[in-house]
């Protein structure tokens, strides 16, 4: 059970209020029609599965319903930071 700081509500809340939405920073290609099948497949299906630092998209589903990003260590489950959409993470894998 994670304890997650919602950057919009400004306080920690229990994991059950949130939904995990997968890897963060997967931007929709600006011109999908120009993508090859391979490029589109990459966007659709291929995700990182690192041991260690990972950036994830979460939504405060039962709270403010805002999406935001989390930098999390997938090994220790530590949440190293939360940051709003459009912001860049300050903790990144080496």
């Amino acid at each position: 059970m994670f304890h997650i700081f919602c950057p919009h509500c400004g306080e920690y809340r229990e994991e059950e209020e949130f939904h995990a939405k997968g890897e963060a920073h997967i931007a929709r290609p600006l011109d999908p029609d120009a993508c090859s099948d391979e490029e589109w497949g990459e966007f659709l299906y291929f995700r990182k599965n690192p041991r260690g630092i990972h950036h994830e998209l979460w939504v405060h589903a039962a709270g403010c319903r805002k999406f935001f990003n989390i930098t999390r260590n997938t090994q220790t489950y530590e949440i190293l930071e939360v940051y709003k959409l459009g912001e860049t993470p300050s903790v990144v894998a080496e």
Binding site: A61, F67, L85
Partner: peptide, 13 residues
């Protein structure tokens, strides 16, 4: 509803 919010918040704010 979450889908609409997802696209609005992440792709087309």
């Amino acid at each position: 509803l979450e889908w609409l919010e997802l696209y609005h918040q992440t792709e087309w704010p």
